[in-house]
């Protein structure tokens, strides 16, 4: 998906995914024609503001979106099986085994009534029906060791409330990885944690990826986390994918006005930037009544320069030369190349 060719087989292929939720007020179009793929050993970052469709995309991939109450279109292929058309037992077999998820809030992801050893062992037993109690315990111990819980022999019998936030997130990661899944989806895994603990968790995920070779989808709103932890990035806005690029390309040459705006709003730790921060005017649109044409148009300061084009046509993803990134914007290549964040952040 970027200028570099990635090794490793394709683990997940999402094509033209749309998810809409009918409500009394109208259809909430949470995800709108999103396509991407991830290969083993690769980390894809999905960035966007609240309501951009990041989490709905993730839970739909996991088969957690109820297709009876939501309109789901497109296809999601995990290991060649289309999640959206497979029956529930098949999806259940994949979930936990082939793909697993780490959630934002580790306290609500764990069951307060069971010991952590129990919960890790249970995730293993679901996919290994014949295993003994002893095996389960050994597997759980091994996982606690791998995710860096000190003194695991004693702590395996403790309950979630006896652990700190960072430790709980390590346990959630242990549960997710116990069956060695080929795809790990982490939905804002460090948002609830302190920066020092966030650094620990990101390092842990990196080292476990090297050991297990899984593909990771990291969902976040933090561009700093993206810069540190992912290989490729997809920027989402109002349910649509706006830009796709390798992480260095994205930060060197953001080639969508929205990406450029996001980067302008980030403050730097290295130099004092007193004075007005750049902001993107307004707020994200309602997903019930999206603006016509490009959904970013009402907040885009460049839309006026193209006349009516932006309000008449939804821009499609295309490759921007010579940058090599994919961008959904009506501006021509030259204009997008000129959108470097430098002449903008000042």
């Amino acid at each position: 998906m970027s200028d570099e060719v990635r090794k490793g087989e394709v683990v997940l292929e999402v094509e033209d995914l749309s998810v809409g939720f009918p409500t009394p007020d109208g259809l909430v179009q949470a995800v709108n024609g999103v396509s991407f793929s991830v290969s083993s050993g690769q980390t894809l970052g999905i960035v966007g503001e609240s309501g951009s469709g990041k989490s709905v995309t993730a839970s739909t991939i996991m088969g957690l979106t109820n297709q009876k109450s939501a309109n789901v279109l497109g296809s999601i292929k995990v290991g060649g099986i289309d999640i959206l058309r497979a029956d529930e037992p098949t999806v259940r077999g994949l979930r936990g085994q082939e793909m697993a998820m780490v959630f934002q809030d580790p306290m609500s992801a764990l069951n307060p009534y069971y010991t952590v050893g129990n919960q890790i062992g249970e995730a293993y037993a679901v996919h290994h029906p014949g295993c003994t109690k002893k095996e389960r315990r050994e597997i759980a111990l091994g996982m606690l060791n791998k995710v860096g819980i000190p003194n695991p022999i004693q702590r395996i019998d403790e309950y979630p409330h006896q652990f700190s936030g960072g430790m709980r997130q390590r346990i959630v990661i242990a549960i997710a990885l116990v069956n060695n899944p080929r795809l790990l989806i982490a939905d804002e895994p460090t948002t609830a944690l302190d920066v020092t603990v966030q650094a620990q968790i990101l390092e842990l995920m990196k080292s476990l990826q090297q050991e297990f070779g899984s593909a990771i989808i990291l969902i976040t709103h933090d561009l700093g986390v993206v810069a540190e932890a992912v290989d490729d990035v997809m920027v989402m806005y109002a349910g649509r994918s706006m830009e796709k690029a390798s992480v260095t390309t994205l930060f060197d040459n953001p080639s969508h006005p929205y990406t450029r705006g996001l980067m302008g709003a980030v403050r730097s730790l290295d130099h004092s930037s007193r004075g007005s921060l750049h902001t993107i005017p307004g707020s994200p649109p309602s997903l019930i009544s999206l603006p016509s044409g490009c959904s970013f148009r009402p907040r885009c300061d460049l839309a006026a320069s193209l006349g009516d084009t932006c309000s008449l046509k939804v821009p499609s993803m295309r490759r921007v030369e010579p940058i090599g990134s994919l961008s959904a914007c009506h501006l021509d290549d030259q204009q997008l190349v000129n959108l470097t964040k430098k002449n903008f952040a000042s």
């Binding site: 920066v195 020092t196 650094a199 561009l223 540190e228």
Partner: peptide, 10 residues
């Protein structure tokens, strides 16, 4: 604390 803050520059 400062070195733990992610830098938005890969």
């Amino acid at each position: 604390l400062m070195s733990a803050v992610p830098v938005a520059n890969p």
